[in-house]
């Protein structure tokens, strides 16, 4: 069985500024990978390489066994951007219209069928936003908006969820509920790659941790991660894992 994500000796620079250096990393199907690292460490760039938004300068990045940048089956990747509030802007789209977009890679031009409508309804139901389907996405709370983006990925029947600090600006209670949802989806078989600045959250929910600062400093399970000094090495100074007792 091929890994969901297979990064081999990938290097990427913006102009002459290297951002990713010789990173190799695999994410098996059904894994929940937490990607941590200081600001400007190349986390977002690595995520963009993984979902095919960028091509590595050297090395390879495969997604479901195909070069990520050439992957034709775009519906297999669900992307949740950093600030979805920004993405929504003032556009008067409803929650349901956003979730319907998940079906667009399946039916970019042809009419929606019963299965499309069922997938949309099920996705809205699954993340618990069916009751606000007719509301404008721009007028929701941060937590609700993130759920709408997750629902879009579920409607697409994505196999991989890629999230870039999805809970920035989301209140603590909604954050907990959001991570519980991710946890449940992962239990149901969804592969997840999550960038998160809160190391406590990552070590609680993720099944694997990758610690990045241009190069990969650590890749392994959360228990081993808190034991090593990879964090200090990556951040370049003393940094403690904040204990979370919720």
């Amino acid at each position: 069985m091929t890994a969901a994500v297979d990064v081999r000796e990938a290097t990427f620079s913006y102009g002459d500024r290297p951002v990713i250096e010789d990173v190799s990393l695999t994410v098996e199907t059904g894994e929940f990978l937490g990607l941590v690292g200081p600001n400007g460490s190349g986390k977002t760039t690595l995520l963009e390489l993984v979902i095919g938004l960028r091509r590595p300068d050297s090395g390879t990045v495969s997604l479901f066994g195909e070069p990520a940048a050439d992957l034709a089956a775009g519906e297999r990747v669900g992307y949740v951007p950093q600030d979805v509030g920004e993405a929504a802007g003032g556009m008067p789209v409803t929650v349901e219209e956003v979730v319907r977009m998940g079906r667009y890679p399946h039916r970019l031009f042809r009419r929606f069928r019963g299965e499309d409508r069922r997938a949309v309804a099920a996705a809205l139901e699954r993340v618990g936003i069916a009751d606000i389907a007719d509301r404008r996405i721009g007028r929701l709370s941060g937590g609700q908006r993130q759920r709408a983006f997750i629902a879009r990925a579920l409607a697409a029947e994505a196999d991989l969820l890629a999230l870039d600090e999805p809970t920035v600006g989301v209140d603590a209670e909604s954050r907990e509920a959001f991570y519980d949802l991710l946890h449940e989806l992962n239990d149901e078989g969804m592969t997840i790659v999550l960038i998160e600045h809160d190391i406590g959250v990552v070590t609680t929910h993720a099944s694997e941790i990758a610690c990045l600062n241009r190069a990969l400093f650590f890749h392994g399970d959360p228990e081993a991660f808190v034991e090593t000094d990879a964090l200090a090495a990556a951040y370049g100074n003393a940094q403690h894992v904040v204990a979370h007792d919720h």
Binding site: Y79, P81, M101, Y104, L108, F109
Partner: peptide
Amino acid sequence: GAAYRPLVYVTFDEVGARAAGI
């Protein structure tokens, strides 16, 4: 009318649209 869906997707979320292979 023909390109409504890709146009909507790109307008709403350009990065998401690219990730979705549009």
